[in-house]
Structures are given as structure tokens and as C-alpha cells.
Amino acid sequence: MVSLARARRPRNPLAAEDNVAGWVFLLPAMIIFVLFIFGPILYIFWLSFHQWSLIEPAKPFVGLDNYRTLFSGDADFNLALRNTIWFALGVVPTQTALGLLLAVLANRKLRGKTFFRTAFYFPSISSSVVISIIFLWLYSARGLINYVLIQLGFPTPRPPWLSNPRGIIDMGLGAVGIENVSVWLAGPSVALLSIMMMNIWTTMGTMMIIFLAGVQDIPNDVYEAASLDGASRRSQFFDITVPLLRPVILFVLTLGFIGTFQVFDQIFVMTSGGPAKTTITLAYLVFQEGFGNFSMGYASAIAVVLFFIILMIYLVQRRIVGETAVR
């Protein structure tokens, strides 16, 4: 298409006008993008080289000082990085697997599948703040989850879900007599795990919709041929659906990692990073340093690091899938 248009251009005097029209139509979006997204991103790089506080008139250039502080063992940054990685490692595979499972189920000829599709997608279109507040109630000491646990005969956990800073791996090892595991190995805290579960529930609907599109793209005759050859449902799933969905799976994984590395709203509403900082994520730390600790320059440095982490994830995904395979 592109080459055709280019070849025709000298003969068609209207093409130049088309070009202008194209730019005019693009312009509003371009202006908004440059002004409110691209510009601020560049500005963050500039800020990260300064000792920059919103409330201080003097904003001296400090070179790489912010980065030096960041990588010379800033406890908060390490904590946030650890929490974010645990969060991503817990949430992304689970939501991908569940999203795929739901997509395959929702693609079957089941009674009420439209209801299930809507029900599972619903959390994705709701405000994350509203969902966070609902889960705040569910997780509360006298909330529904504890009520159900009591009815089932379990003891209620104390401290309750969102105020328990103990790492789950640490708790598991503690149960078999291994004490004092290192901070990294302690695993996500009960509080972080609670938010992770909520996040999985919220996003698996989005993943389901993406997978659904992929699943519906697989031609039916492949399955027909397979079933004529005597392939079971199970092997059809693992030998046809999953391999053919490979690019979609990688796309969903990438989306998932980018989303989880940016998690902020849930933390802001539910825990403010507590208890004992076990739910501080990188994005939340950016906010806290910038607005709570009056260090926007340092916060920008963290944001730049976060930017490169996400860029790396994206590049790895591109390398694996190859440009052409992305739909």
C-alpha cells in the first residue's frame, strides 16, 4: 500500500493535499501526546540529574548523584524492587494461565457463556480505586473473608490480611522449623499477597478477552482434523491451542509485566506501602519520594530506572516473538 501510494504521488497533484490533510488530522493527538506524555517523559530525565524539590526555589544540578544514591544500597529502593518483582512473578503467570483457561472455557458452547464473559471482564472496566475499597472491606479483620473462614472452622489470621508484614515463604519455612531466612527469600508479605490476589482477579478478565480473540482466530478445521485423528480434548489444548497462541501468550505476558511493574492505585488506596513497607512498589516509591519526601529529582531517577526495566522487558519480548508475529 505504502509503496503504491509513493509511486503514484508524482502523477497525482491531490496526494500532497492528502498528506497535509493527514497531518492536520493527526495534529491534535500529536500535540496532546508531545505536550502531556512525551515531553514530561523527557523532562523526567532532566529532573533526575538535579536535586529538585517542588517547594524549594534552588534546584542545583547534581549530575549522577541521585543514581549513585539509588544503586549504593538505598534500602527503600531495594525493598520496592523486591516487592515489585515478587508482585510481578506472582501475578503475571497466574493471571495469564487463568485468562487462557477462561478464554477457552468462554469459547465453548456453554449455557450462559455471555454472562460469564461479562462477569469476568467486569472488574477490568471498573475503577481500580472502587475495587480496592471493596477489597479493603473484604480483607478487614471483620470482613467477609474472615467471616467465611470462621464459618469454615479456620482461625482468623492475626494480624489480619492487610496488616501482616510476614513473608509467606518465611512463614512456610517457619512452620517446618527454619528461622531467619534472608529478606529476599522471605517472599511477599501476607499483605502483598492479598493485593496480588485482588490484582489477579481484576486483570484476568482483560487477559481472557485478548486470549478469546486469539482462540477464535484458530481455524476450527484444525480441531476437527485432530479429533478425527483421535486427539483428546486435553492434547488438543496443549498441542494445538497453546502453540498456536504462542505470540498472544507472549503479548499477554509482556502486558502483564508492564502492568505489574507500574502498580500504584491499589497500594495507594489499600496500604500506603505498609505494613512495614512490604507493599511499597517502585511506582509507589516514586510518588512517596516526590510528594511525601519533597525529592522530585530522586523520584525522577527512580522513574527512569523503572522506565529502563520496562523497556528491557519489552525488548526481551520483541526478541523472543520477532516483530512480525505481533498482531
Binding site: 494480624p159 501482616n164 508484614p165 510476614r166 505498609g274 505494613p275 511525601g292 519526601n293
Partner: peptide, 20 residues
């Protein structure tokens, strides 16, 4: 810098109450 200290101290107290 008290806000950062406030956050850090809260974390210390929460760890204390959690028996850590």
C-alpha cells in the same frame, strides 16, 4: 526530612508489633 523518618519509624513499629 521528617516524613521519610515517619515512614521508616512506622515500618519499625509495625515490625515490632508483628514480632519480627
Amino acid at each position: 526530612g521528617g516524613q521519610k523518618f515517619n515512614d521508616d519509624a512506622n515500618a519499625v513499629l509495625q515490625n515490632l508489633f508483628a514480632g519480627q
